[in-house]
């Protein structure tokens, strides 16, 4: 089970909207190496890890990734609030806006919806940790 704290892991206070930037940042929300994939990767892999301390670590890391997801979602939200129709069209945000308006939907920068094929769970700890390193390195 989980507990929620009503604060961000690191404060986000964006004053100027920027829909163009939001379309790049959203990949860190729902893209292949985004925080949602990271969180689901760790929280799914942990069940089959035969060492309690490592399974516990994956739980804590997967939980921290959820906090990252919330920060990235906040960045996208603050970059897209109070946009004018002119800014939406000029910044290339119109295609996203048609389907989601200013809602934050997990997708990659290219519009590909989030799905579980972004990560792997093989039930073997070395294989899974190797995939974690590849994914975490890509997200750096």
């Amino acid at each position: 089970m989980w507990n929620y704290e009503k604060r961000l892991q690191f404060p986000v206070n964006i004053k100027e909207p920027n829909a163009k930037l939001a379309q790049a940042i959203i990949s860190q929300f729902g893209g292949p190496d985004g925080e949602l994939a990271a969180s689901m990767r760790y929280l799914s892999q942990r069940y089959s890890v035969p060492y309690r301390e490592v399974a516990g670590l994956l739980t804590d890391i997967g939980t921290e990734e959820l906090a990252h997801l919330e920060m990235v979602g906040t960045i996208v939200h603050q970059l897209t609030r109070n946009l004018s129709m002119e800014e939406i069209e000029k910044s290339g945000f119109a295609n996203y806006y048609v389907d989601h308006t200013v809602g934050v939907w997990p997708q990659a920068a290219g519009g590909i919806p989030f799905n579980a094929c972004e990560f792997q769970v093989k039930g073997d700890p070395i294989t899974d940790l190797t995939e974690d390193m590849a994914a975490d390195g890509a997200a750096l």
Binding site: E5, K6, P11, N13, T74, H77
Partner: peptide, 26 residues
């Protein structure tokens, strides 16, 4: 209250009335 454990309330539901983190300072 940042957590429900700290949300003891009488006049109003303090947890529900709290600002949400994505609102930002502005």
């Amino acid at each position: 209250p940042l957590t429900k454990e700290m949300a003891e309330s009488d006049k109003e539901w303090r947890w529900g009335m709290a600002p949400l983190p994505w609102e930002g300072a502005c």
